[in-house]
């Protein structure tokens, strides 16, 4: 009896470590984005004779994109609630829905990119477009990593169900996904909204 209690206590401590470590990681990632944001703000006017932000962005399109991501984040939150209630099937459905919305977001982002590139406004065009593509694509890359993680989690939940370890991983995943959501809000505001003003 005593033994299992101790083992449990140890497990909790180690969960605590992982969560704390993950928060620090998120902070460092946040700083990578902060650097890219800083660069974007500096480079915003460096259009090199090319188009500026208010000529390029299609706000309604990006708004739909944003809604997709926000919804996926919301569902991701529900998924964690389901996981805490040990509702395995609900978790899988939640993960799939999160993933589908995320995929939709990525598809829209890629559409926007390919549209810009086909217009001749690729990242090589100007300092501004360089900063724009890098910032948004870095976020997109994170979303892609998140999607990969999500697939792995679907596999894992369907194989082993909701163990304490799985629950922790799901919680961390949702942290990551919410974090990307917050970053996107900043991108939406600083890049797109201020961009079309």
């Amino acid at each position: 009896m005593n033994k299992t209690k101790e083992a449990l206590a140890r497990r909790i401590v180690s969960d605590d470590k992982v969560t704390f470590g993950f928060w620090i990681y998120l902070m460092t990632d946040c700083l990578i984005f902060a650097s890219l944001f800083a660069v974007y703000v500096v480079q915003r006017s460096a259009t090199a004779g090319g188009p500026s932000s208010n000529e390029l962005f299609d706000l309604p399109f990006v708004l739909v994109e944003t809604l997709l991501l926000l919804t996926s984040s919301f569902i991701c939150g529900l998924m964690v609630l389901a996981a805490q209630a040990h509702r395995k099937n609900l978790v899988i459905i939640g993960l799939i829905a999160t993933g589908l919305l995320g995929a939709g977001f990525l598809a829209m982002e890629l559409t926007e990119f390919s549209h810009l590139i086909s217009e001749g406004y690729g990242w090589q065009r100007s300092g501004f477009l360089t900063a724009f593509f890098t910032l948004v694509a870095t976020h997109g890359l994170h979303i892609s990593v998140g999607m990969l993680w999500l697939f792995v989690m679907i596999y894992r939940v369907s194989r082993v169900g909701i163990t304490p370890a799985t629950l922790r991983k799901l919680t961390l995943f949702s942290l990551f996904w919410h974090f990307l959501d917050v970053i996107w809000i900043f991108i939406f505001t600083i890049v797109y909204m201020i961009g079309v003003l």
Binding site: A48, G49, G50, E119, G120, Y121, R125
Partner: peptide, 14 residues
């Protein structure tokens, strides 16, 4: 200076 940049094939699109 950017405004005087003439290289780059994107010019005609702009």
């Amino acid at each position: 200076m950017p405004m005087h940049e003439t290289s780059g094939h994107m010019k005609e699109h702009g």
